[in-house]
Lab assay of single mutants.
Amino acid sequence: PDFTLHWNGITIHFKGIDEEQFRHLRELLDRGVSLEELEELAKELIK
């Protein structure tokens, strides 16, 4: 499924991740993950 997340004025689209992965990403963003960390995470998910 696809998810869209609005965070700090940025709209991020996640394609092909499951709800569990999306929930994990939201928790990280709510905790204050940096954009660099988010990019690293995205690379991991894409593999």
Rank of each mutant, 00 (worst) to 15 (best):
P1D: 10
P1Y: 15
P1E: 11
P1M: 15
P1F: 15
D2R: 08
D2C: 13
D2T: 15
D2F: 13
F3S: 01
F3V: 02
F3H: 04
T4R: 07
T4Q: 04
T4S: 09
T4C: 06
T4I: 11
L5T: 01
L5S: 00
L5D: 00
L5P: 00
L5W: 03
L5I: 11
H6R: 09
H6E: 10
H6L: 11
H6N: 10
W7D: 01
W7R: 05
W7F: 09
W7N: 02
W7A: 07
W7K: 09
W7L: 10
W7P: 00
N8S: 03
G9H: 03
G9E: 02
G9Y: 03
I10P: 00
I10D: 02
I10C: 07
I10H: 11
I10N: 07
I10Y: 05
T11S: 08
T11L: 06
T11W: 05
T11F: 07
I12Q: 01
I12M: 08
I12K: 03
I12D: 00
H13A: 09
H13T: 14
H13Y: 13
H13C: 12
H13Q: 12
F14Y: 02
F14N: 00
F14L: 09
F14A: 01
F14M: 04
K15P: 08
K15S: 13
K15W: 15
K15M: 11
K15Q: 11
K15D: 11
G16Q: 06
G16Y: 08
G16R: 04
G16C: 06
G16T: 03
G16E: 07
G16D: 09
G16K: 03
G16P: 03
I17H: 02
I17L: 08
I17G: 02
D18E: 06
D18I: 03
E19A: 14
E19M: 10
E19D: 10
E19Y: 13
E20F: 15
E20T: 14
Q21S: 12
Q21F: 12
R23T: 06
R23F: 12
R23V: 07
H24N: 07
H24L: 15
H24A: 12
H24E: 04
L25Y: 04
L25E: 00
L25S: 00
L25I: 07
L25V: 04
L25K: 00
R26L: 10
R26W: 12
R26N: 03
R26A: 05
R26K: 10
R26H: 04
R26F: 06
E27I: 13
E27G: 13
E27C: 15
E27L: 15
E27R: 15
E27H: 14
E27D: 13
E27S: 15
L28G: 02
L28W: 12
L28A: 12
L28N: 03
L28M: 12
L28I: 08
L29S: 03
L29R: 06
L29A: 11
L29K: 03
D30C: 08
D30K: 15
D30F: 15
D30G: 12
D30Y: 15
R31Q: 10
R31Y: 08
R31P: 02
R31I: 07
G32E: 03
G32M: 08
G32R: 03
G32P: 02
V33R: 05
V33S: 11
V33E: 03
V33N: 03
V33T: 11
S34T: 12
S34V: 04
S34L: 06
L35W: 08
L35D: 02
L35R: 05
L35V: 11
L35F: 09
L35G: 03
E36R: 12
E36H: 12
E36Q: 11
E36K: 12
E36L: 11
E36A: 12
E37I: 11
E37P: 01
E37K: 10
E37L: 09
L38R: 00
L38G: 00
L38K: 00
L38N: 00
L38D: 00
L38W: 05
L38E: 00
E39A: 12
E39I: 14
E39N: 08
E39S: 08
E39L: 14
E39R: 12
E39T: 12
E39G: 06
E40L: 11
E40A: 12
E40K: 13
L41A: 09
L41M: 08
L41F: 12
L41C: 03
L41G: 01
L41K: 05
A42I: 14
A42P: 00
A42Q: 03
K43S: 07
K43E: 11
K43F: 10
K43D: 08
E44P: 00
E44V: 07
E44Q: 10
E44M: 12
E44R: 09
L45P: 03
L45F: 13
L45N: 03
L45W: 14
L45S: 06
L45D: 02
L45M: 14
I46R: 07
I46H: 08
I46A: 13
I46T: 07
I46V: 10
I46N: 12
I46C: 08
I46W: 04
K47G: 14
K47R: 10
K47H: 13
K47V: 14
K47A: 15
